[in-house]
Measured scan of single mutants.
Amino acid sequence: NKFNKEMRNAYWEILLLPNLNEQQKRAFIRSLYDDPSQSANLLAEAKKLNDAQA
């Protein structure tokens, strides 16, 4: 399933972002589970926040 693969990839990438705190990571991951079809958008948002907090 395409969404499962995308979601899994986004999950691990979000977990490994160094500048997000645990609460932020949990919020993004919760959103991933709520709507896996938004994986790419959520990952992009997480990366943007990660860069902003660098």
Rank of each mutant, 00 (worst) to 15 (best):
S39D: 01
L15T: 15
K47G: 05
A46Y: 02
L32V: 08
K5Y: 04
Y11D: 01
P36M: 05
Q24S: 05
K2P: 03
S39W: 03
A54Q: 12
I14W: 00
E13T: 09
N21Q: 13
P18T: 04
K5I: 02
E22R: 06
A40H: 14
L17R: 02
I29P: 00
N4G: 11
Q23N: 08
P36S: 08
K47H: 13
L49W: 12
L17D: 01
Y11S: 04
Q53W: 15
W12L: 08
A54R: 00
E45H: 13
E22F: 07
I14D: 00
N21D: 12
E22S: 10
D34W: 06
L49V: 08
L15K: 15
N50D: 07
A27R: 10
L15A: 07
R8F: 05
A46E: 00
L16M: 08
L16W: 14
E45P: 00
K5D: 06
D34I: 15
Q53V: 15
D34A: 09
A44D: 14
I14F: 02
Y33I: 05
N50S: 08
N9A: 15
Y33Q: 02
Q23T: 13
K25F: 03
Q53F: 11
S31M: 10
E45N: 11
Q23S: 15
R8G: 04
L15N: 09
K47E: 04
L15V: 15
D34G: 12
F3K: 02
I29D: 00
L32I: 06
A46D: 00
K47R: 08
Q38E: 11
L17N: 02
K2F: 12
A54S: 13
E13D: 07
S39N: 03
L16Q: 11
S31R: 10
K48I: 10
I14Q: 00
K2T: 15
S37Y: 12
R26D: 07
A52F: 14
Q53Y: 10
K25Y: 02
I29Y: 08
M7Y: 06
A44W: 13
F3R: 01
S37H: 04
L42T: 12
Q53D: 13
D35A: 06
E13A: 15
N4D: 14
K48A: 06
L32A: 02
F28A: 07
A54Y: 13
P18Y: 05
E6P: 05
E22W: 03
K48H: 13
K5S: 02
N1E: 07
Y11M: 06
F3W: 14
Q23P: 09
E22G: 12
P18S: 08
N9L: 05
L43T: 06
L16S: 06
A27W: 10
N50A: 09
E45V: 14
D35R: 08
